[in-house]
Design a protein around this nucleic acid. Structure first.
Ligand SMILES: [Zn+2]
Ligand SMILES: [Zn+2]
Ligand SMILES: [Zn+2]
Ligand SMILES: [Zn+2]
Lengths: 137, 137
DNA sequence: ATAAACCTTGGAGTTAACTCCAAGGTCAAT
DNA sequence: ATTGACCTTGGAGTTAACTCCAAGGTTTAT
């Protein structure tokens, strides 16, 4: 049994983060000391590790809540559901990437057309492209 | 001269958004009617159009503030500065894409390893990959 | 005994870009 | 004269995941 600071240090998160996770229902201390200190055991470490890993692959805390409730009751969930969650998140990320890629291309195009010189920006093609009504979209 | 609702409708934004832009110093009404109504002219349309275009290529409102202050005083800025802003934003977007791509690959890998069947998730490879201490990173 | 390091709670602040609301004033038409 | 559409302000709420703070209680070491 160890206290919040020790768990935090062990997995390199802040104690504030751990209290936040508890508040979000992700990771509750299994016990409290007589003075009210949170006490954790090895299972808590595993659970926190799971949370951290899930974050590393792109799940948000809401996703992770779902994953955790599946994890503690695997019999009552199917591979199908877990995979669906994973693919759904992947698709969301793909959509976000697609949007950002459009931005990236637009900005690259704009930058390529600008001379980047030190003369006044009077005729800067970036500015005129953003101004002009007939800007090709 | 027209009022906020007409400008909003013309460029398909909400009046709340326009008031927000004013509060952020992006677009101020050139005049107020005797009763306090915001009044805009053609220049305001151009300016709002500029803001919208800049958003469409990925600039945020803070970037756009900078672009606008360059735009209204082009003599005192160089192409170099405008291009730098553009490239800087592009690089930021590239970094974000890179992070998301890592997520995307991780999730795809996880999904590929899971059978996705309707049997219980007892041995689901996605869950075990997130649990196992020796998970290859 | 006392200082340092740790813990508690509740609540506010952060970022971005809005969005919504309440309470009230204005304007055009019927 | 009264409806309805429009406008004003100020302020709160939204999302995500923390982060920071204050005021106080606990533990450990010297
Ligand atoms: Zn140039
Ligand atoms: Zn230029
Ligand atoms: Zn399976
Ligand atoms: Zn599976």
């Amino acid at each position: 049994m160890f206290r919040i600071g020790q768990l935090a240090k062990q997995l390199n998160v802040s104690t504030d983060t751990l209290r936040y996770y508890e508040q979000q229902g992700l990771l509750t201390a299994c016990e409290r000391s007589t003075s009210g200190y949170r006490l954790y055991d090895k299972h808590a470490v595993d659970r926190l590790q799971f949370i951290i890993r899930a974050k590393e692959v792109g799940f948000n805390l809401k996703d992770i809540q779902e994953l955790l409730s599946i994890k503690i009751d695997k019999q009552h969930y199917s591979c199908e559901e877990v995979k669906a969650l994973t693919l759904q998140k992947r698709d969301w990320i793909r959509a976000r990437i697609a949007q950002l890629s459009i931005f990236e291309r637009s900005l690259t195009l704009l930058a390529n057309q600008c001379c980047g010189g030190s003369e006044p920006a009077d005729t800067c093609s970036i500015l005129t492209a953003l101004e002009d009504v007939d800007g090709a979209h």
